[in-house]
Amino acid sequence: MIGAMFPIVHLGRPWLFFWLMPYPTERQIWPNFRSPLVWDFFAISTYLTGSSLFLFLPTIPDFALVRDKTTGWRRRVYAILALGWSGTTKQWHRLESAMQIMAIAIVPVAVSVHTIVSFDFSMAPVPMWHSTIFGPYFVAGAIFSGIAALIIAMASLRKFLHLEKYLHPVHFENLGKLLLMMSLLWGYFVFAERLTTWYGNIGSEMTVFWQTQRLSFAPLYWTMVIANFVVPVTILSFKKTRTIAGCVVASFGVVLGMWLERFLIIVPALSHKYLAYSWGSYRPRTPEILLLIATFGAMILLYVLFSKLVPIISIWEMKIGEHPKLAHEQQTRDEAQTMWRTQP
């Protein structure tokens, strides 16, 4: 939701954002489907719809459970959210099938939405933007920062909601390994992007390149490299430091580093385009700083509200984790009884 807001903010005339929707004007002119801005509309709408539904589906049985445990207006609200779910075998089977389909479908949609966000840049003839690596670079970046944000959210929930019983150190260790892998992948993409630009030695691109490597944006660039690569790789490569605290420190580094990465994609390139007369400098003004703070605040607020109103850990899926043990116990008991009966 926060991400979807930003293309609208940057439209120039945000109150006319509905012009992106695929319906004709009174003169039968439709949106231009060859424009990356319209791709954004389709990609973000599909991703928002898909991920919202993918989030909602497994919560239906939990809403039913909460419905049975509450009274008054809360019961009525959760009864509506539960859609009259009772938990028949047919409902369970259909729900699991739907979740399998959604799990398969949401992956290519996630890849496409982040690729299309990268297309917003790479379709433009701006130095350092017109790059074929931008698609996978943005997809990897999204997964990278997503895992980091997930680790921070999990650690916060574990501490403040006392979920130690459900969120074990092994979960953080495994996510830490994934974050380490994504950090290495990110490093590889950055190296590939920088090497090809340097080797190509095109004047307009080299201007932006040196701005980030040695000149005014170099402090931010090397902070990004340290935060996204050096810190996570150093902490997460060793089992001894791949603790909950270690993973959280590495994740904060990644969140900071990925924010700097997006800043460094946009600002140095736009302030050093082809002709020197258009070069300029940029400093964020108060409204921009407030917008940034507000988006962080809105995200945290929405997440806290969500964790307050919705079971933050799926109750029925936790129960399923106990089934293999149950089935195994039953099988062992049956085998033991068979042996007992057959042996003299």
């Binding site: 859609l83 099938s97 479908a105 297309f119």
Partner: peptide, 27 residues
């Protein structure tokens, strides 16, 4: 790009509608 997104949207929305219809939800 548009064709891919609408194809996936069609599959996703149909899945959820089919889930509701075949499970007799809402009830």
């Amino acid at each position: 790009v548009i064709i891919f997104e609408m194809t996936m949207l069609g599959a996703i929305v149909t899945t959820v509608v089919s889930l509701l219809v075949t499970s007799s939800l809402p009830k």
